[in-house]
């Protein structure tokens, strides 16, 4: 194809997206669109998979049967979400093995929030309330993104995600209404998860390199700063309602802009964690690689069994 022909195809492609048409796997697409989508969808899938680890840590120690079944179901959902997203990503011509390889070698990133430790039960509450809360704000606009398989996966994910946030907030309510020690535990979890949750919504608009292109392809409908403002404004009253304090002395309502002003985010910390120097980066990757390697004989045995069954059927037919 000549350069001019490609240019022409690209223009037609951009017009289709501008008209809100969906792009499906076998449609022609610019190489950059394919690559950007593989990167974003796989990062998203990896985040779901690694996201199971900090919570899996607490399943056996959940304080009641009610909490245990809920947490188990939430972690199982995360596995499911990872799988919807991996299969959406594979429609772009990348294999599952390549995607795992990229995660395990550190070539692909996942959400940096999962590199923080979960040291008390209240962290299960804070994660559901804040981390899933921020994730929902990020994800809802993706239900109408331009790539069909991604949009369909996101619709399923968003439908299932709201229970995650509600169960987390319920844990926080219970602790906040409990003994002074329990309330302190809830406050401590909020103190530790608040700032990393704000960072989850991505670098400030001034620093975000992909925003313009992502807006055009509807991978993004609002900028990181707009999403962050929305998250803060909706979360502050939720904290007040249960008597917990957001750990930001500069936080105050700004009547003029109709939103909260808030303190400086420590972006150095964010970039440190992204670059692999967070408190649990190594632990998370070790756990993930270990699970994959120790599962190898099971995967091989299943393939060997399938082949045997197939051969048996063939023999019978002869």
């Amino acid at each position: 194809m000549s350069e001019k022909e490609v240019k022409n195809l690209e223009e037609l492609f951009e017009q289709r997206i501008a008209r809100d048409e969906k792009i499906e796997p076998k449609d022609w697409m610019p190489e950059k669109y394919r690559k950007t989508h593989i990167r974003q969808i796989s990062q998203h899938a990896h985040s779901e998979i690694v996201g199971m680890l900090p919570e899996g840590n607490w399943i056996t120690r959940a304080p009641s049967m009610r909490r245990k079944v809920a947490l188990l179901a939430k972690v199982q959902d995360e596995a499911g979400h990872g799988l919807y997203l991996y299969s959406a990503c594979e429609t772009l011509g990348v294999s599952r093995e390549e995607l795992y390889e990229q995660l395990h070698t550190g070539k692909a990133k996942y959400s940096s929030i999962f590199n923080y430790p979960t040291i008390t039960w209240a962290d299960m509450g804070a994660i559901g309330w804040l981390v899933d809360g921020a994730a929902i704000i990020n994800q809802v606009p993706l239900c109408s993104t331009s790539y069909g398989p991604y949009a369909r996966a996101m619709i399923r994910v968003c439908k299932e995600e709201s229970f995650h946030q509600r169960q987390g907030y319920e844990i926080m309510i219970t602790l906040a209404n409990g003994t002074p020690e329990q309330k302190e535990m809830a406050q401590d979890a909020l103190n530790r998860w608040w700032w990393p949750s704000l960072m989850m919504l991505g670098p400030t608009d001034a620093e975000s390199v992909h925003t313009a292109q992502s807006m055009k392809w509807k991978l993004k409908r609002k900028t990181n700063d707009e999403l962050r403002q929305q998250f803060i404004d909706q979360t502050v009253p939720q904290a007040e309602l249960i008597g917990l304090t957001i750990p930001d002395p500069d936080l105050k309502w700004n009547e003029e802009k109709g939103g909260h002003d808030f303190g400086e985010i420590d972006w150095d910390e964010f970039w440190q964690v992204v670059k692999g120097h967070g408190p649990c980066n190594k632990e998370r990757m070790d756990a993930r690689v270990d699970a994959w390697e120790k599962g190898e004989w099971v995967r091989d045995a299943a393939m060997a069994y399938a082949k045997k069954q197939e051969d048996k059927k063939l023999k019978k037919a002869i």
């Binding site: 199982q76 499911g80 799988l83 919807y84 299969s87 995967r299 299943a302 069994y305 399938a306 197939e310």
Partner: peptide, 20 residues
Amino acid sequence: FGSIHAADAEMALENARDVY
């Protein structure tokens, strides 16, 4: 609904049940 990896048809059904 989507896709799934599995060693054989029976496992594909079970995995599809769990995932979808």
